Computed example of a mutant assay.
Amino acid sequence: MSKEDMVKEAVEEAKAKAAEAEKNEADQKEPEEKADAAEDETAQTEADSMDEDSAGNDAGENESEADEDSEEESSKTEKKKFFSKKNKKDKKDEKIEELTDRLTRQMAEFDNFRKRTEKEKSQMYEIGAKDIIEKILPVVDNFERGLASMSEEERTTPFAEGMEKIYKQFMTTLEGIGVKPIEAVGQEFNPDFHNAVMHVEDEEFGENIIAEEFQKGYMYRDSVVRHSMVKVAN
Score class of each variant (00 low, 15 high):
E4G: 02
D5P: 00
K8E: 13
E9K: 11
V11L: 13
E13F: 04
E13G: 03
A16F: 11
K17T: 02
K17E: 14
A18D: 02
A18Q: 01
A18P: 02
E20Y: 06
K23Q: 12
D27T: 06
D27F: 07
E30D: 06
P31K: 02
E33I: 15
K34V: 03
A35L: 05
A35I: 02
D36H: 07
D36L: 14
A37E: 05
A38F: 03
A38C: 00
E39K: 14
Q44H: 08
A47N: 04
S49Y: 10
A59Q: 14
E61Y: 12
E65S: 05
D69Y: 08
D69N: 12
S70A: 14
E72N: 08
E73V: 03
S75E: 11
K81E: 11
S84I: 00
K86A: 14
K86E: 07
K88P: 04
K89F: 13
K91T: 01
D93R: 06
D93L: 13
E94R: 06
K95Y: 09
I96N: 04
D101M: 12
R102P: 04
R105P: 00
R105Y: 02
M107P: 02
D111H: 06
N112I: 07
N112K: 14
F113Y: 13
K121G: 02
S122W: 00
S122V: 03
M124C: 02
G128E: 14
K135V: 01
N142P: 00
F143C: 02
